[in-house]
Design a binder for these strands. Structure first.
Length: 271
DNA sequence: CTTTCCCGCCAGACC
DNA sequence: GGTCTGGCGGGAAAG
């Protein structure tokens, strides 16, 4: 009667796994790699500048273009790409640079919820700013260079480059240590960093820089910092996630949190 | 099978 | 009461 079931090695003491350390992390890097590579390819092809893409609902044939919609066509990355294509690099003073969420959602034919994701990551790069409810203002690449410079400064201040290198080394020689609790030695108790804003570009909306700042914007900025401080401009998502989560005070061992952050990282990577 | 990640519920914040 | 904003998990497609 049930002589021997799975001879579980004493890895797990019958308790629940706090958070799968490497498994979930592994997913990150493998996830972004194809996407990033695809993006690079697309960038090359984009140079050709095809003029056949009509964002206003293509094909009303109603025959066969109803089944071929795969998941890739509805990805956030592609959606963001379409969004960026609708605006010039620099805002035209004559045109109104107002962005209405509802209009965008209608134009791109997606739910409102998705626009929020796009806007948050764009806002983290100061390419847009919230002017009012349902309204964003387009800034484009006007401040992008400055934004990246500042983010790089902050990233260096937080020793992100060192941390990434350390984690990589750990991962390289790590082999038999099951309980991987890597406590990064920061010189001082690192504070949660808040939303970075540009000097000279004040935020109209007071609620932006509030302490109520939710994670998406801040995490987006942190992620960009990692790119800016890395020597080859390559950041594996597992390392990124480790830093981004480990920095969160309170020892957030929520793997759910982890997963959620991951999803947003995909979006950021696609911009 | 595992990994990727879209959809959209629903809870807070704001009116 | 409403609307707006965006965490968060489920569960299905992609690998």
């Amino acid at each position: 009667m049930g002589p021997l079931t799975t001879p579980k090695k004493g890895r797990e003491p019958g308790s629940v796994d706090p958070w799968t350390p490497t498994s979930n992390l592994k997913m990150l890097i493998s996830a972004a790699s194809p996407d990033i590579r695809n993006r690079e390819k697309e960038l090359c092809m984009d140079n050709d500048e095809r003029e056949g893409v009509d964002p206003t609902q293509d094909a009303e044939n109603g025959e066969e273009s109803e089944k071929m919609i795969s998941r890739k066509e509805k990805s956030l990355g592609l959606l963001c790409h379409k969004f960026l294509a609708r605006y010039p690099d620099k805002p035209n003073p004559d045109l109104n640079n107002d962005i209405c969420l509802d209009d965008v959602a209608t134009e791109l034919n997606v739910e409102r919820r998705r626009i929020y994701d796009i806007m948050n990551v764009l806002e983290s790069l100061h390419m847009v700013s919230r002017s009012a409810k349902n309204r964003y203002t387009w800034h484009g690449r006007t401040n992008l260079a400055q934004t990246l410079a500042i983010l790089k400064q902050v990233g260096e201040k937080h020793k992100y480059g060192q941390q990434m290198q350390q984690i990589r080394h750990f991962d390289g020689e790590e082999k038999e240590n099951e309980e991987v609790v890597v406590h990064l030695e920061n010189g001082e108790g690192q504070r949660e960093l808040f939303f970075v804003e540009l000097p000279g570009v004040e935020f109209k909306a007071a609620s932006v820089n509030s302490r109520k700042d939710k994670s998406l914007r801040v995490m987006s900025q942190k992620f960009v910092m990692l790119f800016l401080v890395s020597n080859p401009r390559v950041v594996s998502l597992d390392v990124a996630a480790k830093i981004l989560i480990g920095e969160d005070q309170g020892a957030d061992q929520d793997k759910n949190k982890f997963k959620t952050k991951v999803r947003r990282l995909y979006d950021i990577a696609n911009v």
